[in-house]
Design a protein around this nucleic acid. Structure first.
Lengths: 357, 357
DNA sequence: ATGAAAGCGCTAACAC
DNA sequence: GTGTTAGCGCTTTCAT
């Protein structure tokens, strides 16, 4: 059934006329080897197709790998709780392979806390890092440090410029915005009305991530030729609920807004509550992610669609790539783009029931 | 980091005052052990939490497990090609664990071929079987045989009654039908019009699978109270293209059909071609699965939605559960329901790019 | 610099 | 029946 027997280090040793010890040293660049020996071994390695046996490898080794996760504190934004679920699933998956996974948290609006969290992370001497790059430019320093220490890192959730992680895991945010627009277009008769993108500006967050989504959102409507749709963006800054409400209602009435695209997962609830309170029910709303509160809103009909970013799986896959690098020296793909999952009242349960793999 | 050191067979041996050989015999019920010894070992096992080390286990063992896949011949229906992709992904995943995966094919409309394929399968003496139960009652005999020989089997794609597989992997077909209905409802102004479910009856297939989808489809519309929607079903039997076309067109004109739900993945193309030819473009069509032809139709706007059943992943997960059973003796969940994935023109690329995990 | 050998935890063959 | 032991393929230590 299996082709020819798997090639072992022992075989390579025999073929190149050295001992297993030397082969191991060449393969892992550890210890001293003479040029002559190195050449012989490398020649053989080039000719045959050697894949180390992971089982024997981790069984024979006592090395424990540590992967650190750096994310915003879930207490501030439940969105990040989902990524922790992915971490737990990863722990189970990788437990047999001597893999330790540790989360580190920072506060979303506090660059100081990011500093100290990343400091702590570095002190824990991880072999690899999985990070949600929220602070953008302010965090460049951190990634530079990782680069210098040759610690591989993977980004998820948002792709940022000027940094070269091993891989990026997440959605195509531009396309995500387009999808959101198309869903609103589906759920509304937009003609002669306005659709809006709502930024509940939480200072830092108002960044690449949301700008990309907005770009896609606007592009979609400009590319439509069958209707007259106006696109506006409502930006609400600060945390004051009262002013949020009045600003939102004012904008809706003034522009006859019929569709709202809410690119941040926690924004839907706030908005839906205000709309309900003000008896504005003929609005098509598209939000993000399977937060419990969002699921409720979807079921009650207060919002129409969710786009699921699947942060738990993003983490799961990020860890997967890092573990593969550490264990096998297997390179991750530069980008792993996730499907843009459309959630409606009729399929939301099927998503909740399904597990992370 | 790790709790206390993992417990090994050696530890159990020491604790119970016997040798590792005896412990092994007790754990795996192989070989002879005296009652006295068995009691001692089982007592210790009950008290501590022993999990065998999979790495050491498969490394030390020469046993090769064989899992057989039984599906319709992909040459007849490209849908089944997708499941073979899942098989390939599984091969890679499980290669290190001495797992051999073999597909067996039968012809969709030929019970004789099912007989001979299942015979061949049995002759190959698999340790477990993953099967798409298409032939229903006719195949009961086969499953009974597996039961008798104590060969574990998992079903995917369709859940059938009167059989107790280890697990079922697939979608909730009733809910899938509801979802299809809701999408059509979204894409059409159905009021005073008719929506239809189209059965391109390929004899055998006209079964549980499609009946469940139809039930969900109809239920959705009957539960709507805001519009007057008529639901009909168009059944086209036989393979004759010419009569298919005339029957379909006739039904559409007679009932003013504005929405078509096509529960079989290969039916969309045929239908879309007929509609285009007859210049019937104001129809909302919901089809199934990411066949290349369906993706094209979605992009060209000839159909509006696809529901993705993800057969490749169904196989992947089915193998996963069987491998876990064989290797770890870990029980699979009775049902693993997949998310009902909604595919539109705006997110189809994101699905095609994303890989199976 | 290099080879030999002792594990890692488990299985399976072999003595007694 | 039961204990002992030689692998599985790799890492890692210890002589040389």
């Amino acid at each position: 059934m299996e082709k020819n027997k798997m090639i072992r280090i022992k075989d390579i040793a025999k073929l190149s006329g050295v001992s297993v010890g030397t082969v191991d040293r060449v393969i892992h660049k550890r210890g001293k080897v003479s040029e002559a020996a190195r050449q012989k071994v490398e020649k053989v390695l080039k000719e045959i197709d050697y894949t180390p046996n992971l089982l024997a490898k981790t069984l024979g080794s006592s090395k424990v790998y540590k992967i650190a996760l750096l994310v915003p504190n879930p207490k501030q934004d439940p969105y990040w709780n989902l990524s922790l679920q992915g971490l737990e699933a990863s722990k189970v998956e990788w437990r047999p392979y001597h893999m330790v996974l540790e989360p580190h948290f920072f506060e979303l609006h506090d660059f100081g806390s990011f500093k100290s969290a990343s400091k702590k992370l570095m002190d824990s001497k991880p072999d690899a890092v999985l990070s949600a790059p929220i602070f953008l430019n302010e965090a460049l320093e951190f990634f530079k440090e990782l680069d210098e220490l040759n610690i591989p890192y993977v980004h998820f959730n948002t792709m940022i410029p000027d940094v070269s992680p091993l891989a990026f895991i997440g959605q195509d945010l531009y396309q995500s915005g387009r999808l959101g627009a198309s869903l609103i277009n589906l759920g509304t008769d937009c003609n002669n009305n306005t659709v809006s993108i709502l930024h509940v500006s939480e200072s830092i967050q108002f960044s690449v991530h949301f700008k990309e989504k907005e770009r896609g959102f606007r592009d979609y409507f400009s590319s439509l030729n069958n209707g007259i749709v106006t696109v506006s963006s409502v930006i609400i800054e600060g945390d004051d609920m009262k002013s949020f409400e009045s600003k939102l209602i004012e904008a809706i009435k003034k522009d006859k807004i019929k569709g709202l695209f809410i690119p941040t997962s926690s924004g839907a609830k706030l908005t839906a509550e205000i709309l309900r309170k003000n008896k504005l029910s003929d609005m098509c709303i598209v939000g993000y992610d399977l937060l419990e509160e969002n699921v409720e809103l979807l079921k009650s009909g207060d919002i129409n669609f969710l786009i699921n970013q699947n942060p738990n799986r993003q983490v799961f896959r990020g860890i997967h790539h890092l573990a593969n690098l550490l264990l096998f020296n297997k390179q991750a793909p530069e980008k792993e783009l996730f499907p843009l999952e459309v959630i409606t009242r009729e399929n939301v349960d099927s998503y909740i029931k399904s597990t992370i793999h």
